[in-house]
């Protein structure tokens, strides 16, 4: 099977600080890949380089056979098919939940207001926010905001979803409602790349766990392998410290 996403020798630095030091990664359709690692190890940067919110210095990112690093590639077209969920939600502050979801389908895919509205109601209902569709996005709770953000991304009917620490800004009590939505999404066969600190979620849901440290992928494998029998001492150290904290 062809990978839906193929990253090759990706490098990125901010000034003199080298954040990504040659990343190679393949993601297959329907796969759920969780990227774990300490803060500052380059996880979020890697995710942001996948849909070019950050422009990498060198290397290649192929998505569905097109190289995003190629200057002639229409990035906007490719981004339509890659959904992204941010740590800080980034809901459009001037819009209600429904308009947050309909804006992109209407202005990018040129759907009619009615068609986009139906789609938005469907996805908002799926994330359990049927009664909040007219709520001002600033008045929603963190968990509700993040679920609206997921619905907003799904309204573009993407082939792959990127999650950048989707629960890090949430209270521990409401992390669950967002993770449940993500689990359901994984169950429906969505290809997902998730940067997370939720080890239980990674263990339970992911097909593959990628451990990043200091700008490189140190180790990857099934959750059982990585969590059960980590090969690298650094992975062991990270995981043991994490499990102690919990």
């Amino acid at each position: 099977m062809e990978p839906i996403l193929k990253i090759e020798k990706l490098e990125k630095s901010f000034g003199s600080l080298k954040v990504l030091k040659g990343i190679d990664l393949e993601v297959y359709p329907g796969e759920v890949v969780c990227i774990i690692g300490a803060s500052g190890s380059g996880k979020s940067t890697l995710l942001r380089c996948i849909n070019l919110l950050e422009e990498a210095d060198s290397g290649h990112v192929w998505f569905e056979g097109r190289d995003l690093m190629d200057l002639s590639t229409n990035l906007n077209k490719l981004r339509e098919r890659i959904g992204m969920v941010f740590q800080s939600f980034n809901l459009f502050a001037n819009k209600n939940a429904l308009d947050n979801c309909t804006m992109a389908p209407m202005s990018v895919k040129r759907l009619s207001r009615q068609r986009a509205g139906e789609l938005a109601v469907k996805h908002l209902t799926d994330v359990g926010l049927r009664e909040f569709i007219h709520a001002d996005s600033r008045r929603l709770s963190g968990g509700q905001k993040q679920r609206v953000a997921i619905a907003r991304a799904l309204c573009m009917e993407p082939d792959m979803m990127l999650f950048d620490e989707p629960t890090s800004a949430l209270d521990p009590e409401i992390v669950g409602e967002v993770l449940d939505v993500m689990k359901r999404l994984a169950g429906e066969g969505m290809t997902m790349v998730v940067v997370t600190h939720e080890m239980a979620f990674a263990k339970e849901v992911s097909d593959r766990v990628v451990f990043m440290d200091d700008g490189v992928i140190l180790e990857q494998g099934s959750p059982a392998e990585v969590f059960g029998h980590p090969k690298e001492p650094r992975t062991k150290e990270f995981l043991s410290r994490y499990l102690e904290d919990k």
């Binding site: 906007n76 077209k77 959904g83 800080s88 459009f92 804006m103 992109a104 202005s107 573009m156």
Partner: peptide, 17 residues
């Protein structure tokens, strides 16, 4: 917040949109 632009771009909207 720059996140507003990033969210819009991640949905496939052009910079101008």
């Amino acid at each position: 917040d720059v996140g507003q632009t990033e969210a819009a771009r991640s949905l496939g909207m052009t910079n101008w949109q």
